[in-house]
């Protein structure tokens, strides 16, 4: 483990160069060799060039890897990093408390706001406790409870999306995973207070959409959001396990799951820039960028009347999708 956590495969050449520079520097100091200065400078320029090249041309699969980086800031990092007086609220009042979903009240820029969000862990132990950010029906119902609370007390809602999917377990199924997600989508459609959705990491399918309906939907630069994760997509298409593993990066490309793609499709409203190389390299900047974007979105959504807001929300989702309308006479069959 390095300072920034595990090194992603495609970042290795950069790290190796950086390591060499470091070694040369140490060597130059101990041996008092000024002659190495030129070589060090040359290598530093090379690193800068490689960084630019790698990070300004990230493939969709590389972004998926960055979005999954264990040191990436997660929901509680954002809550603690940009809000004050957080009061976490537990439980769905029906079955239990889902630790893959956190919710509560906080103050952003001094103003009350209700927050819901998937919570991943930084290491295996935390991830086991958080179920890797895969919420069950209890999690979705807890989130809905807090959103209803926000509506009652006229507070806006911030939803932080970061999940590899809703939990596909037997208990989750038995307690109505599908119904819980459907209910949330439906209720978020008519919640009277502003809802700001920020996809901070992974936005996998119904598990993401279950807290993902809002007046402003924003994505971080390296987050991904799609109908299915690249791996199961590949498995469904290719059946064969080996082939599926070999094609998962191609599936990430085919699914068009990046923030830029979603902006083009009209599914999101804005992209939040990340520090060079990804949010995991500089939490402070990432959190500051997210905060700025949320404040702007809250300002915009807060300026609408309730009726305007609900009408605009319905209009926003009504326009999503792509199809042609043909004159009846052109019917080819």
């Amino acid at each position: 483990m390095e300072e920034n956590g595990p090194i992603l495969e495609f970042e290795k050449p950069i790290y190796e160069l950086e390591k060499r520079i470091e070694e040369m520097r140490n060597y130059a100091v101990t041996e008092n060799l000024d002659a190495l200065a030129d070589e060090i400078q040359r290598l530093e320029e090379e690193v800068a060039r490689q960084r630019r090249k790698t990070y300004s041309n990230l493939t969709r699969w590389q972004r998926v890897l960055i979005a999954r980086h264990p040191n990436r800031p997660h929901t509680l990092d954002y809550i603690n990093g940009m809000m004050e007086d957080f009061v976490e609220l537990h439980g769905d009042r029906s079955f239990g408390d889902d630790k893959a979903m956190v919710s509560g009240l906080a103050k952003l820029d001094g103003r009350p706001i209700a927050v819901v969000g998937h919570q991943k862990g930084k290491n295996t132990k935390e991830n086991v406790m958080r179920n890797f950010g895969m919420a069950g029906p209890e999690g979705y119902r807890k989130a809905l409870r807090i959103m209803k609370l926000a509506e009652k007390f006229d507070m806006p809602v911030l939803s932080l999306v970061d999940t590899p999917g809703a939990y596909p377990g037997a208990g989750a199924e038995e307690r109505g995973q599908a119904e819980a997600i459907a209910r949330n989508i439906y209720e978020m459609g008519r919640l009277r207070v502003p809802i700001i959705v920020m996809v901070i990491g992974e936005g996998a399918s119904g598990g993401a959409l279950g807290i993902g309906v809002g007046d402003r939907v924003i994505m971080m630069e390296n987050a991904w959001y799609s109908v299915i994760s690249p791996e199961p997509c590949s498995t469904i298409l290719w059946k064969d396990q080996e082939k599926a593993a070999a094609r998962k990066a191609d599936c990430a490309e085919a699914l068009r799951l990046s923030a830029t793609d979603l902006l083009q499709f009209g599914v999101i409203d804005e992209i939040v820039p990340e520090p060079f190389g990804g949010a995991h390299r500089d939490h402070e900047t990432a959190i500051a960028n997210v905060r700025k974007s949320i404040l702007k979105a809250l300002h915009e959504a807060g300026a609408q009347s309730v009726e305007e807001r609900l009408e605009a929300r319905l209009e926003k989702y009504s326009s999503m999708g792509a199809f042609d309308v043909v004159p009846a006479a052109d019917d080819p069959s």
Partner: peptide
């Protein structure tokens, strides 16, 4: 149809 299919759930 990727994310656009998912958004039909919301619509």
């Amino acid at each position: 149809e990727g994310i656009l299919s998912l958004m039909q759930m919301a619509k």
